[in-house]
């Protein structure tokens, strides 16, 4: 068992972090908001918490909370103007926001510029990661059945109908955006303290799209979908390496084929194979 963990420990940790990131995007998606800014929110959480622990010796749990709150605060500030636009335009605006965050991180001295932050204390453990994933999944599952969850679903299905039923759609759209950013901030903070080093490039366009792929492959009908999607897409390269496929481009190709098959044959994601949950 300990040997298994020595070999696959970092993979196991990354599966958990990616699952948390996938869940962070699941929240705005469940309210019908296609946001591509969650990797940037993770960056804010990662940089925020790492600066606190490295420069100010802030205790780790406090640094995570501060990173997540910073991320949520930024989401709150940009949410009201950004969420007035819909669909693909919202995706573009949030993507642009992600670029802004990346460029800010490259140019500030406190974030270490293009080289990023080096020497972040290694404080994240598998237990912390999976405890957070479990707590988040439970919270989101319960949220889904609450009045808030039903409001998210109503906004997703038909915004006009939701309005005339008394749902303050602006508030719930903002709420989903901020909650997603908060979870992404936690994931970013855990990632920073797992990895010793963070650079602005890690949180760019391909990371944003990766989060969306987790949700598409796993499905967004329940909280298990994004977790399953993150697991499969993260583990797949290792499995492929095991069977002898090591070349990078080929792996990307396999990812693409899986995505295509899921979209064509399981539009509700792989989790729809295991019983329908609304």
């Amino acid at each position: 068992m300990s040997e298994f963990f020595a070999v696959y420990g970092s993979l196991i940790n990354f599966v958990g972090i990616n699952a948390l990131l996938a869940l962070s995007l699941y929240v705005p998606l469940s309210a019908g908001q296609l946001s591509l800014g969650n990797a940037a929110f993770a960056a804010i959480g990662a940089y925020g918490s790492a600066i606190l622990t490295m420069r100010f010796n802030v205790p780790f749990p406090l640094a995570i909370a501060a990173g997540a709150c910073l991320s949520a605060a930024v989401a709150m500030a940009i949410g009201t103007p950004v969420l007035r636009i819909r669909g693909i335009f919202l995706a573009m605006a949030t993507l642009a926001f992600g670029e802004v965050v990346r460029i800010v991180a490259v140019n500030l001295a406190i974030t270490g510029g293009a080289e990023g932050l080096i020497g972040i204390p290694n404080k994240t453990t598998a237990l912390i990661i999976y405890g957070t994933v479990a707590a988040t999944a439970y919270f989101l599952a319960v949220l889904g059945g609450s009045r808030i969850g039903w409001s998210f679903a109503s906004v997703r299905e038909d915004e006009t109908a939701a309005m005339v039923m008394g749902i303050n759609t602006t508030r719930y759209k903002n709420g989903s955006f901020v909650l997603g950013a908060f979870i992404a901030g936690i994931a970013g903070a855990l990632y920073a303290h797992l990895n010793f080093i963070i650079t602005p490039g890690e949180f760019g366009f391909s990371a944003e799209v990766q989060l969306l792929i987790y949700n598409i492959v796993g499905g967004t009908r329940s909280v298990l979908g994004p977790i399953l999607g993150a697991f499969i897409i993260t583990v797949l390269p290792e499995v492929l390496r095991g069977v002898g496929v090591t070349a990078g481009p080929l792996r990307m190709g396999v990812n693409g084929v899986i995505l295509l098959l899921v979209i064509l044959y399981l539009p509700n994601g792989l989790s729809s194979l295991f019983g329908q949950k609304r």
Binding site: G145, W150, A153, S154, D158, A161, M165, G166, R278
Partner: peptide
């Protein structure tokens, strides 16, 4: 309507102002 919800779920979503949940 909310097309991908059941009839029951449509009505439950419509109870937003009733408090509860």
């Amino acid at each position: 309507l909310f097309p991908k919800m059941t009839c029951m779920e449509n009505v439950i979503a419509g109870q937003h102002l009733m408090g509860g949940r």
